Amino acid sequence: MTATVEDTFQRPVGELLRGWRERRRLSQLDLANQVSVSTRHVSFVETGRSKPSREMVLRLAEHLDVPLRDRNQLLLAGGYAPIYSETSLHSPAMLAIRSALRRLLKGHEPYPALVVDRWWNLVEANAGIALFTEDVAPQLLTAPINVLRLTLHPDGLASRIINLAEIRANVLTSLQRQITSTADPDLQDLYDELRGYSGPPGPDQPGAAEVVVPMKLRHGKHELSLLTTIATFGTPLDVTVSELMIEQFFPADDATANYLRGL
């Protein structure tokens, strides 16, 4: 059964911290050494015998690399107020972030680039994204547009991805790592959905000699080859900003570059 946010809030802060420690595959001794406290203190916090201070909760969360959204949940479970804001991208306070993102996306044209949130829902995109949205089922383009669903759904981009088995394996592997890192039940639901999509038979892993796996995409009579990179904001202090991911696609060969520039 998938845990809900309410379940998380009802669980003691020590139990939540133990879950994050185990998720990071650290022993109590490892964590104690990192935070410069005794192993006994870590044990007492996790079992509820000792109530951690607000500062201790934050120190442990930092060393466990807990996402900002979940640090707020740890603080609430410990009886403290959250300290990280969660600001809508449409608020005036986010004008600088929105402007920076749009400049970045525009500057990447004619190649596709997009911005997604923690759950891979589309936030912003440049004109190059039309390369991926042509001829897909209308329901996949209804907000919120989930780019992983758009990519792997049989009625989406999957029908034009030549090396679909490889791309599917890479997407699922990356998403599984994200689930391990965040323990997000919504991402787990998305993973289960994507795994259920039918796909062509064939190898699901790249060859040993591959450095990166390009997406080989059919566009009209042309076969395109695209590499992708993902970037995030450095040292964010807002939940929304911390969860934004900027995905940029680059041509993997001259033929693809020339074709995209000519569109």
Score class of each variant (00 low, 15 high):
Met1Pro: 15
Asp7Glu: 15
Gln10Glu: 14
Gln10Cys: 06
Gly14Gln: 07
Leu16His: 03
Arg18Gly: 02
Gly19Asn: 06
Arg21Met: 01
Arg25His: 00
Arg25Cys: 02
Arg25Phe: 01
Leu26Thr: 07
Leu26Arg: 09
Ser27Pro: 02
Ala32Glu: 12
Gln34Val: 00
Val35Phe: 08
Val35Leu: 04
Val37Ile: 12
Ser38Arg: 01
His41Ile: 12
Ser43Asp: 13
Ser43Lys: 00
Phe44Val: 07
Val45Trp: 06
Val45Lys: 09
Val45Gln: 06
Glu46Ser: 08
Thr47His: 11
Arg49Gly: 03
Leu58Gly: 04
Leu58Asn: 10
Arg59Ala: 14
Glu62Thr: 11
Asp65His: 14
Asp65Tyr: 04
Val66Met: 04
Val66Thr: 08
Asn72Lys: 05
Asn72Leu: 13
Leu76Pro: 01
Ala77Lys: 13
Ala81Val: 11
Tyr84Thr: 05
Ser85Asp: 15
Glu86Val: 05
Thr87Ala: 00
His90Val: 00
Pro92Gly: 03
Ala96Met: 05
Ile97Met: 11
Leu101Cys: 13
Arg103Asn: 14
Leu104Thr: 13
His108Ala: 05
His108Phe: 05
Tyr111Ser: 07
Asp117Val: 10
Asp117Phe: 05
Arg118Glu: 08
Trp120Ile: 11
Asn126Thr: 10
Ala127Lys: 12
Ile129Trp: 13
Ala130His: 04
Ala130Tyr: 01
Leu131Gln: 01
Phe132Ser: 05
Gln139Ile: 10
Pro144His: 08
Asn146Ala: 14
Leu150Asp: 05
Leu150Lys: 13
Thr151Ser: 15
Thr151Gln: 15
His153Gln: 09
Pro154Trp: 11
Asp155Thr: 03
Leu157Ala: 12
Ala158Glu: 01
Ser159Cys: 09
Ser159Gln: 12
Ser159Asn: 08
Ile162Glu: 11
Glu166Asp: 12
Ala169Pro: 01
Asn170Lys: 11
Asn170Arg: 14
Leu175Gly: 13
Gln176Leu: 06
Arg177Asn: 05
Gln178Ser: 10
Ile179Val: 14
Thr180Arg: 14
Pro185Ala: 08
Gln188Lys: 04
Asp189His: 02
Tyr191Glu: 03
Asp192Glu: 07
Pro201Thr: 06
Asp204Met: 09
Asp204Cys: 04
Pro206Trp: 03
Pro206Asp: 00
Ala208Leu: 07
Glu210Met: 14
Val211Met: 10
Val213Ile: 13
Val213Glu: 05
Pro214Ile: 08
Lys216Arg: 15
Gly220Leu: 09
Lys221Glu: 14
Glu223Arg: 13
Leu226Cys: 08
Leu227Ser: 02
Thr235Val: 10
Pro236Ala: 05
Val239Ser: 03
Val241Pro: 02
Glu243Gly: 02
Met245Cys: 07
Ile246Gly: 03
Phe249Arg: 04
Phe249Tyr: 14
Asp253His: 01
Asn258Thr: 11
Arg261Gln: 04
Leu263Gln: 15
Leu263Ser: 12
